[in-house]
Amino acid sequence: DVLAIADAVLSTSAMIGYARSSDADKFLVVTECGLSDRLLMEIPDKHFYKVCKLCRFMKMITLEGTLDSLRHLRYEIELPEDVRMGAKRALERMLELSV
Rank of each mutant, 00 (worst) to 15 (best):
A4G: 03
P44E: 01
R74A: 02
M58A: 14
L91C: 08
H72D: 08
I5W: 02
P80T: 10
V51E: 08
A87I: 14
D25Q: 10
I77Y: 08
D68F: 09
F27K: 00
Y75A: 11
L79N: 06
D68A: 07
C52W: 02
L91N: 05
V51C: 08
S11P: 02
E76M: 06
T62A: 08
L79C: 06
M58P: 02
C55E: 08
S22R: 00
L54S: 10
A4S: 10
K26L: 04
E42Y: 02
L97M: 10
V51M: 11
E42W: 02
V83D: 07
A14Y: 03
E42R: 09
L79H: 09
P80S: 14
G17M: 04
H47D: 06
T31P: 00
D23C: 05
D7M: 05
A90S: 12
G34F: 10
V2H: 11
D37P: 01
C55Y: 06
V51T: 08
T62C: 10
V2Q: 11
R89K: 15
S22F: 00
S69M: 11
G34C: 04
P80W: 05
D7W: 03
L28M: 05
F57L: 10
D82R: 12
R93Q: 11
V99I: 09
A6N: 07
R84Y: 15
G86E: 14
K50G: 04
E42P: 00
I5F: 04
I43R: 01
T12P: 06
K26Y: 03
T31A: 14
R84H: 12
L67A: 12
D37Y: 12
A24K: 15
D7C: 06
V83N: 02
M15N: 03
P44G: 01
V2A: 13
I16T: 06
K59L: 09
S98Y: 09
Y75N: 15
F57Y: 11
K59C: 03
S69W: 03
E76K: 12
R89P: 01
T12S: 11
M60E: 11
E81T: 13
E42I: 03
G86S: 14
S21W: 03
E92Q: 14
L39M: 04
F27G: 01
I5T: 07
R93F: 06
K53M: 13
D25K: 15
K26I: 02
E32K: 11
Y49G: 02
L54N: 11
L10H: 01
A8N: 11
S22I: 01
R56W: 05
L79E: 05
G65M: 07
K88W: 07
K50Q: 12
T62H: 08
R93W: 04
V30I: 15
D68W: 04
R20W: 03
V29H: 00
G65H: 07
A6K: 09
K53S: 10
I61H: 09
